[in-house]
């Protein structure tokens, strides 16, 4: 049976960007970032178990401006992914799926993640 060639499914650049779509992609992106980011946590714990010298090395890297930048991004990524997970919990109860509601939840996810990240860093890093 011959099948005529069909149009390919349009990819991301075709669609008008919506906030729900952006936050869905961000949820996956932050998930992957957190996946890789666990190396930061485990390397720190392993260095502490290993000895003072490796721990000094880790502390120097994490304390550098670049290390702090990465940790700030990691904090945001973790918080954004957590809030995204809570959004999925809400949807699991068939709440917040109507037009308007889902956009509101997506914006809340984004705004709250930025606010909470800044709050955590202000309280525990910049003011500490």
């Amino acid at each position: 049976m011959t099948v005529r060639s069909r149009p390919l499914s349009p990819h991301l650049q075709i669609y008008r960007w919506t906030i729900t779509m952006a936050m869905s992609i961000a949820h996956r992106g932050t998930g992957i970032a957190n996946y890789v980011g666990t190396i930061l946590l485990v390397a720190w714990l392993a260095a502490a178990a290993w000895g003072q010298e490796p721990l000094n090395g880790i502390n120097a890297v994490y304390g550098s401006w670049f290390g702090q930048l990465v940790l700030f991004g990691y904090t945001w990524s973790l918080i954004h992914h957590m809030l995204g997970g809570i959004r999925h919990f809400i949807w699991d109860f068939i709440i917040g799926m109507e037009p308007g509601q889902r956009e509101m939840l997506a914006w809340a996810n984004l705004i709250a993640s930025v606010v909470l990240t800044l709050l955590v860093w202000t309280l525990f890093v910049w003011m500490a």
Partner: peptide, 17 residues
């Protein structure tokens, strides 16, 4: 393998401490 490594290295390090 990656997730196993993360779990094992993390848990062993903590148990050591």
């Amino acid at each position: 393998m990656f997730c196993l490594a993360v779990g094992v290295v993390g848990v062993v390090s903590i148990l050591k401490l």
